[in-house]
Amino acid sequence: MTNSRKTVRGFLFLACLLLAGNLLADAAKTYRIGLTAVILTDQTSFLKEWQDYLSDRLQHPVQFVQRQTYQEVTELLLSGDLDAAWTCGYPYVRHRDQLKLLGVPLFNGAPLYRSYLIVPATDTSTREIGDLKRKVFAYSDPDSNSGFLYPQVSLIGEGIDPRHFFSKSFFTWAHRDVVKAVADGVAQGGSVDGYVWETLSRHEPALTAGTRVVSKSPLFGFPPLVVRKDFLPEHFYALRNALLHMSSDSEGRRLLQRLNLDGFSEGEDALFNGVAASVRILDGIE
């Protein structure tokens, strides 16, 4: 009798523990991180691995959330549905008052990248964007620096109104699709994230072989991971540390290699001054 009571008591205790653990776990933070097409988001298996890696490091679940456009991700971030987002420098600059940098990826050793102007490989005559008058042009996303802002601004810089320069322009909503649109000949020119183009040239050389890089932009701050300014500091630091330390363990390095990145840095706001300047030029014309 006594024994059985002890057993029952033991069970109850165990059940309480489990319940408490569950409650604690529920109460614990799930990190929801938005991803945009600044990276090759169609690598589902990779994203799962990275998600598991981060969950493991943070001892908290991490969930990647993907949306087609930058704008959707930005809105989700600003509305509090997301804790962090890997977005472009352009939305960051636009919403700099509400956002702060979580980390800036290091590409080729620096938190910098360029925008590439690409044309089909068969086009050997185009030397600059000005040569693409009355052509069909592919942008990636209206909130992309490399895929929209920079080519617009560079046309404005040449005194051209980008709204009437091309015979037609369209958005592919992904850098990779800009490359495909140009390689397939749907567009006769396109503007693409240099990092994505370089990464694609390693993953899908046949696709980039269909394009020719006409010109590369000056360096801009690499599309950063950002959080809202009101994001809790303990979460902010936990998340940032997890990112920053990726390059210091083998699994992290392996994942970074898949991303074609060297690591993450804390980053500085000044990195995005170039983007901010572009935004001012574009706003000036509108």
């Binding site: 089909p120 068969t122 069909v136 015979s167 037609k168 397939d184 000949g185 749907v186 567009a187 006769q188």
Partner: peptide, 12 residues
């Protein structure tokens, strides 16, 4: 508007 062989049948 678009075709499945845009190289031959260019857009626009």
């Amino acid at each position: 508007y678009v075709s499945n062989s845009p190289k031959e049948l260019a857009v626009t």
